[in-house]
């Protein structure tokens, strides 16, 4: 069933703050094999002008995607999450995420489209720090494959 177009523009309440830890950043950097010292050494980060270690550019996705669950599990929207794949992802940064940040995410449904039997959902996550300053915006495009569209496809 097609998703209700009246949900376009709907915003969900800001999430509780996520506190970014140095060791969580280190764990993420190690998992992607990235040895850039800006992620693990506060002195190296300071030499680049950052007040503490910073997170790799895609680190924040774990936070925004968790926040987007408010949308994807909204029973009123009725998305069949078992059919969802990640279509596109984009970030626009005011500054990098860094250790010590307490980040809140406000998720908004930007668009709902039906194409070739698939439902396409665009979610924008605005990430702000404790002072209310913008840090990064994440745009996530989710594609819920239609029942007919999946037959015989990889």
């Amino acid at each position: 069933m097609a998703l209700d177009q009246s949900f376009v523009g709907r915003s969900y309440p800001p999430t509780d703050p996520y506190e970014v830890g140095r060791e969580k950043i280190r764990e993420f950097a190690q998992a992607v094999g990235d040895t850039n010292p800006a992620y693990t050494d506060p002195e190296a980060a300071k030499a680049l002008g950052h007040s503490d270690v910073i997170a790799p550019p895609t680190f924040v996705f774990a936070i925004t995607f968790k926040a987007a669950a408010q949308v994807t599990t909204d029973p009123q929207l009725g998305l069949d999450y078992s059919r969802v794949v990640h279509g596109d992802q984009k970030f626009a940064y005011t500054r990098p995420v860094r250790a010590g940040d307490r980040l809140r995410v406000t998720s908004t449904i930007e668009a709902i489209k039906s194409m070739a039997g698939n439902e396409i959902l665009d979610i924008r996550g605005e990430v702000h720090d404790e002072a209310g300053e913008h840090v990064v915006t994440a745009w996530t495009k989710l594609v819920a494959r239609g029942a007919d569209a999946t037959e015989g496809e990889a």
């Binding site: 680049l48 596109d88 984009k90």
Partner: peptide, 10 residues
């Protein structure tokens, strides 16, 4: 500096 990335999309 990884902080030099101001936009990134795929």
């Amino acid at each position: 500096d990884p902080g030099a990335v101001v936009e990134y999309g795929v």
